[in-house]
Design a protein around this nucleic acid. Structure first.
Lengths: 350, 350
DNA sequence: TGGTTAGTTGAGAGCGCTAACAAAAGGGAT
DNA sequence: ATCCCTTTTGTTAGCGCTCTCAACTAACCA
C-alpha cells in the first residue's frame, strides 16, 4: 500500500542537515505531484477522495507543516494582523487586546503586537511601518489619542486599517465604545438618586475616550439643568484619583462623583475614607470599566461596563470585511456600555 | 546626479498593479545589482561608501521595505518569537507580556502571541505547534501549570524554548520569579511584627507560582517554630479572596494573613471591613504582585513586588542566547522579589 | 612589469510555496 | 467508435530574498 519511495523521503539527500519536510517530500511519499499536495492543503474541491486520503496520510507520517513564509511570498499576502497598542497594563486596552488575539486566532490569523511607549505621532508611525514591512494583511490600532490618529492618516489607503476608540470624527473604519452614552448612564444614575449635581474626575484629556466621557457627563448635566462644576483633571491612575479625591473630600457641597475609570474611583474612595466622608452615605461614586475587582472595593463600586469582548470581535469583523474588499459594509461600529449597580451610590443625606 | 533609470523604476512594467518596490527596483535605480542592495541592507562590510550611499538614496526614494517573508524563506529562519500565554488580564502575566513585547521589539524581533483559553495540555500543544508552523525562531511559554509543562516536553529539542514561571524542577531553560523567597519575605515580615502565626489564602494549586508561594509560607512558619494553620484555597480573584476572608474574619485567632496575590488581598480587606475587623488594627494583611492600585486600597497594602520588566528582559536574554546556539550560558534565571511596606501590617493587639 | 592579494561587485541557483496553464483520464451523447 | 465536456493531475514559472562562487578592480610588493 505504501509506495516504495518511503525510505527516500524519510532520509533527505543531506543526511546531516535533517531539514523539515517540504511539500515535495509529502508528494513523493504519496506518489503525487507537489501541486496536488497544495490542493489538498488548501481544500481545493477537485481532488479525488482516495488521493486526498493518501496525501493526508503522508502529511501525518512525515509530520509535515506548511511553511507560512513561502506561502506568504507566493501569494503576496500573509495571514498576519498587526496590532499597535500602547505599553500599558490598563484594564481596558489589555482585555481588549487579549480578546482580539483570541478571536483572530479562531479565524486562523496570526497576530503580531507592537507596543509603543508613548502615543506620539512618530512612535505610532514607526509601529505601523513595522507592520507594513511584515506585509501584514491588516492593521489594528488601539491608540485613542489625537497624535495617533494623525499618524494613521499617513498609512497608504490600500491596506485595511481599523482604529479602536479613535477619533469619533474620523472618517473611515472605526470601532468604538460609546463613551458618551456610558458617561450619560453614570451621570443620569447619580442625578436620579437625587443629587443636585455630579462632579467629575477625568482621564487625560488627550485621550479621546477621556474627552468623550467628560463630554457625555457635561451634556447630561446641562440637559438636566444642573450646575456644571469644574472637572478635576487626572490621568488614569489610582494615585491621581486619590489626589483629586483629597480635594473633593474637603468640599461639603460635593455629594456625587463620576470617575473616568475604576482605578480613579478607587483612589477617590480611599481619599474619602481617609477624610472621614462615608461612601455612599456622604458621597456617591460611580466608576467606568468594571474591572474584576470593582465589586470588592470598599464599598463595592457602581460602574459602567463596556463589553471589550464585543469590541474585539466587531473590530475583527470590520477588519476582515475590509480585507475581503467590501468597503460597502458598515465600517463603523459602536458598542454601548451598560451600568452595573452596586453599593457606592445612595441618595444625598440632606 | 540621479541616474536616468529613475522614471523607469518609478513606473513598474505592469502599470495597473502598482506593486510594492522590490530589491531589483532599488538595484536598477541605484545602478547596481540586487545583491549589492542586499549587502547594504544587511550591513555587509565590503561595500564602497559611495555605493552604499547611492543604494540608500534609492531605497529612500522608492520607499522600499524589505519583504520579511522572502527573507525568512531564503534564510530558513524568521525574526519571529512566538509567545504562548493564557487568556487572562491578570496583572502578572499581562505586564510580563507587555514588557517582553517591548524588549523584543527593541532587539528587532517580531512577537506573535497566541492566547489559550485554558492551560491544558492540548491547548498548549496546539499553540506551540502553531508557532512551529510559522517557523518561529524561538518560543516563550508563559504558562505556570503542570499540564503546560507536560506539553512542552513534546516540542522538538532543536527549537529554542523558554518557559516563564514553569516547573522549578524543570531541567532546561527557565526564567522564574523566586516565589518562595517572596512568600518568605511576606511571612517573615508578619512574624517579625509579633504575630504568633500567619494564615494563608492561596492561589489555584495547579499553578506553580501558587504552589511555591504556599511552600515558602509553610517553610518559613516551620523554621520559626510557628503553628502552620490550614490554608484557605482560592483562585486568583478578589471574589474568592472575599469568600475566604469572610471565614477568616470570624476566627478571633486570625491576626495575620498572607494572600497569594493583591486581588485576593483586596477581597480579604473587604471581608474584614464588612465584619468590623480593622486592618491592620485587628488583622494584618500582606499581598503579592504590587499591582499599581495596591497603594490605594483601604488600607494601603503591604505587598511583595516581583520585577516583571526584569523577568521579561531576562527571558529574552536566555532565549537569544539559546538561539545563537550557546547552551553553555546559564539557561536558568531567578528573579528575587522585594517587599513593599505600606499600612496593612501592625503588631497584634494583644 | 607581472603576480599576488584584498576589496568590491555581479550572475545564478534555490528557499517552499501558489497560480496559470497543459495534459491526461474518465464519462455520456452522438 | 468518435467527439466533447468535465474532472483530476502534472508542469512550469515565478514570488523576493540570500547564498555561493566567480569575476572584476585597485593596490601592493617584488
Amino acid at each position: 500500500m505504501v509506495p516504495k519511495e518511503l525510505r527516500v523521503a524519510q532520509t533527505p539527500s543531506t543526511p546531516g542537515a535533517a531539514r523539515e519536510p517540504a511539500m515535495t517530500d509529502v508528494a513523493r511519499l504519496a506518489g503525487v505531484s507537489h501541486q496536488t499536495v497544495s490542493r489538498v492543503l488548501n481544500g481545493h474541491p477537485n481532488v479525488r477522495e482516495q488521493t486526498r486520503l493518501r496525501v493526508r496520510a503522508a502529511i501525518e507520517q512525515l509530520g509535515y507543516r506548511p511553511n507560512r513564509a513561502a506561502r506568504a511570498l507566493a501569494t503576496g499576502r500573509s495571514q498576519l494582523i498587526g496590532v499597535v497598542a500602547q505599553n500599558s497594563t490598563l484594564f481596558g486596552p489589555s482585555s481588549l487586546l487579549a480578546a482580539f488575539e483570541l478571536a483572530a486566532a479562531a479565524r486562523g490569523f496570526v497576530v503580531s503586537v507592537r507596543r509603543v511607549r508613548v502615543l506620539d505621532r512618530g512612535s505610532i508611525a514607526e509601529a505601523v511601518d513595522h507592520h507594513l514591512e511584515q506585509r501584514a494583511a491588516g492593521i489594528v490600532v488601539i491608540a485613542p489619542t489625537a497624535a495617533a490618529d494623525e499618524a494613521l492618516a499617513a498609512v497608504p489607503p490600500d491596506i485595511p486599517l481599523v482604529a479602536v476608540d479613535g477619533d469619533p470624527a474620523r472618517g473611515d473604519t472605526l470601532v468604538t465604545v460609546d463613551q458618551r452614552a456610558g458617561a450619560r448612564l453614570a451621570t443620569r444614575h447619580l442625578l436620579d438618586a437625587g443629587h443636585r449635581t455630579v462632579w467629575h474626575v477625568s482621564g487625560p484629556s488627550e485621550w479621546f475616550d477621556a474627552a468623550d466621557r467628560e463630554r457625555g457627563w457635561r451634556r447630561t448635566l446641562e440637559e438636566a439643568g444642573a450646575e456644571v462644576p469644574p472637572v478635576s483633571p487626572a490621568d488614569w491612575s489610582a494615585a491621581s484619583g486619590y489626589r483629586a479625591g483629597l480635594i473633593l473630600a474637603r468640599m461639603p457641597e460635593v455629594t456625587a462623583v463620576f470617575a473616568a475609570n475604576d482605578h480613579l474611583a478607587l483612589g477617590i474612595l480611599r481619599a474619602m475614607s481617609e477624610r472621614g466622608r462615608a461612601v455612599p452615605g456622604d458621597v456617591s461614586v460611580v466608576g467606568f470599566d468594571d474591572v474584576p475587582e470593582a465589586a470588592y472595593f470598599i464599598p463595592p463600586l457602581t460602574t459602567v461596563r463596556p463589553d471589550f469582548a464585543t469590541v474585539a470581535t466587531e473590530t475583527l469583523d470590520v477588519l476582515l470585511s475590509c480585507m475581503s474588499g467590501e468597503p460597502a459594509a458598515s465600517t463603523r461600529r459602536t458598542i454601548t456600555p451598560t451600568l452595573v449597580e452596586r453599593d457606592s451610590v445612595a441618595a444625598p443625606s440632606r
